[in-house]
Computed example of a mutant assay.
Amino acid sequence: MKQSTVEQIEMLRERMTDSALKKGRGHPETIGLSRQLDELLNRYDSDQTGIQEQE
């Protein structure tokens, strides 16, 4: 079953937070997860904006 975008956002957020706590905010893994989360949030925001404009 495919995860919803909101579920993907929450999963990435949890992974990023866990990485930051264990490895530090400047660790490459944490930064990579942060970038992935940013991209997903931007895509979600864009999708939501498109839906609102159609209404």
Rank of each mutant, 00 (worst) to 15 (best):
R25K: 05
M1K: 08
M16C: 14
G50M: 08
H27M: 01
I51C: 00
S34A: 06
L37E: 03
M16G: 04
K23P: 00
D45L: 08
I9R: 11
G32F: 02
L12F: 14
L41W: 02
E55P: 00
G50N: 10
T30Y: 03
N42H: 09
R13G: 09
K22S: 05
L21Q: 08
D47M: 12
E14Y: 10
E29F: 00
S4R: 12
M1C: 06
K23N: 05
G32C: 04
S19P: 05
M1Y: 03
E53M: 05
A20R: 07
L12W: 09
Q48K: 11
Y44D: 13
I9D: 14
D45I: 03
T49F: 05
E29N: 09
Q36F: 00
D47V: 07
E55C: 00
N42R: 14
E53T: 01
R25D: 07
R43V: 09
D18N: 08
Q52D: 08
I51H: 02
T49D: 06
R13L: 14
Y44F: 12
G24M: 02
M16P: 03
M16I: 04
L41A: 02
I9T: 13
I9H: 13
I51P: 00
K22R: 10
T49Q: 09
V6Y: 11
R43Q: 14
D18Y: 02
E14H: 13
E10W: 10
V6R: 14
M11A: 15
E29C: 02
